[in-house]
Design a binder for these strands. Structure first.
Lengths: 328, 328
DNA sequence: TTGAAAGCGCTAACAC
DNA sequence: GTGTTAGCGCTTTCAA
């Protein structure tokens, strides 16, 4: 039974109740440093009975580890935060970090001045998981973040990378489009500054070129609106296009909307494939053919690497699987 | 030009450079307490030149305000975090809080034991914005959170509420369905424990009853999967249903998917209306008729109330507008 | 209006 | 193994 505390219980109260010094109590509670089994028991019991909750802020100030994991999304505007992919990632991060007693904060990092040094110096920050990482971001990575940072996307010698096999997945999709007889395949890409999208683009280019097909590239911005714009451009430039590969599902859904508006049948006239398998992909009409990533596993691995701080391989590549639905 | 700091700049360094005591520097920097204009200038300049960044953790420990705003989502499982509505809300919260120098953390609050006391005692927490608030949550609200908490949903004397006019919006939608000739209108609701959904349900019931129409209620869970399940139940129980009002867009999109599968035409056979106007609402086929809320404005108002801590009206109700699209 | 001094609650050297 | 002693960087009385 927990006694209702009149005042906030401090480590000192626990130490006193257990008949040990504050330092010993600290060692037991934060399981750092030695302590005899008997003492451990006494301290733990005292803590439980008093309902002791360590003060994370004081802990951080005193030199302990930070208590929050920052999920940082690099982007031009703060609207990058409003994205179903971020949503899933955040939920997974929160879930993985919770058992460590670590909370998750979401933060937009302006692409032009990511100020990673601020995060590095912030004692409350236990670690950082980066999304939409650019080369400039990696170049400006403060050493203080070593072993406390991971990237979902491109990495560097000091920043382990966790990502789906973008190139392989893109190849699979383009090959699939080819396999169903498409020969004039366009691609709506992501924002040009984002390296993790390059691999998909490169895979598309390589495949299409080696098959002797025309390269038809248009830039999008990861949003449905961008997909709509991109699709209109494709139709204008290359009216005979018979398939579209979109860099992500939002883009693909935007493209499909334009095709519907303009009276094209999907997939009969133009096949459309996306990337990510967001929840609404299977609800669209027609249901979207796309590639599914183990987002949960990827983010979870990145979070674990950051929180454990153990030496991790410089890059982990996760498999992606083609999800065949009606649109392609 | 900011000099590159060899070591972290502390308040003490600023004070020294400005030729004042640490206490005075503190007063100036945190604009609390008096200081002569001349001193203010000197301190500010010193801070700027040295590139001083206050240590938020130390600040919180010493008794200053917390430095993060917690967006807390009440729910049965942590999957409540994975929701497009939460996504939009979080982005808006982050944007509003940023100018205050306050970061945003996302947290799932288990419905059975929301542990709001933890948040209240956490010195790093500047304030809390609650989502999916229940009456039990309000009842257990620690006094320490007074004036630092706001609810998107139901409120209480000590917790100001910020919400869309759910009842009014629901009435508008049901009236619209009636107006286009529907007479057997079913509703797929949210999880039964969530009070902010009750108003919509009540509005539906009242309207339908007063028009002499049958009440056809099925419980969903805010998810597309729930919408699919709900729709199947509706079709089984009341095959002659000619309209469905869903508690949110995800539910509505799930319902539409089932109707498509089973060969019903939307809206010809069954009209479908949603609620929220999420980004994919306009991309679905048919495009979803729904009610749009000023989510950004609502969340922004709540965040501002929490951060300013000024006395705010106990409840702010925001208007919702019907968005007529193809589905109803 | 300003300064001196006392903590906030904890961890981490360093002795024992 | 355990206790003692310094701080972490800041805000906040309390005097001056």
């Amino acid at each position: 039974m927990t006694v209702r505390p009149a005042r906030k219980i401090r480590l000192e109260d626990v130490a006193e109740a257990a008949g040990v010094s504050r330092a010993t109590a600290s060692r037991v509670i934060s399981r750092t440093g030695p302590a005899s089994p008997a003492v451990q028991d006494r301290v733990r019991n005292a803590a439980r009975q008093l309902g002791y909750q360590p003060d994370q802020v004081a802990r951080s100030l005193a030199g302990g580890a930070g208590f929050r994991l920052v999920v940082a999304i690099v982007g031009t505007t703060s609207r990058v935060l409003d994205d179903p992919y971020v949503d899933r990632a955040l939920a997974a991060a929160a879930e993985t970090a919770a058992p460590y007693g670590v909370g998750v904060s979401l933060q937009w990092l302006p692409r032009r001045s990511p100020r990673l040094d601020r995060l590095a110096e912030d004692r409350s920050v236990r670690g950082v998981v980066l999304f939409n990482t650019t080369e400039a971001t990696l170049a400006g990575m403060p050493a203080a973040l070593n072993r406390r940072v991971a990237s979902i996307g491109i990495g560097s010698p000091s920043v382990p990378s966790f990502d789906v096999d973008n190139g392989g997945a893109a190849s699979t999709i383009v090959r699939h489009l080819y396999g169903i007889g498409r020969r004039r395949i366009a691609m709506i890409t992501g924002p040009p500054w984002l390296p993790c999208a390059w691999r998909s683009v490169k895979a598309y280019q390589d495949l299409v070129r080696s098959a002797g097909l025309p390269v038809r590239l248009v830039a999008g911005d990861f949003s449905a609106a961008g997909g709509q714009r991109g699709m209109r451009i494709v139709l204008r430039r290359w009216p005979d296009t018979d398939a579209v590969f979109a860099i992500n599902d939002a883009t693909a859904l935007g493209a499909i909307a334009v095709l519907r508006e303009t009276g094209r049948l999907v997939p009969d006239d133009i096949a459309v494939a996306g990337f990510d398998d967001i929840p609404f992909a299977e609800l669209s009409a027609p249901a979207l053919t796309t590639a599914s990533h183990p987002v949960g596993a990827i983010v979870s691995a990145a979070v674990t690497a950051v929180l454990d701080g153990s030496r991790v391989p410089p890059a982990a590549v996760f498999p992606s699987t083609l999800v065949r639905r009606a649109s392609a």
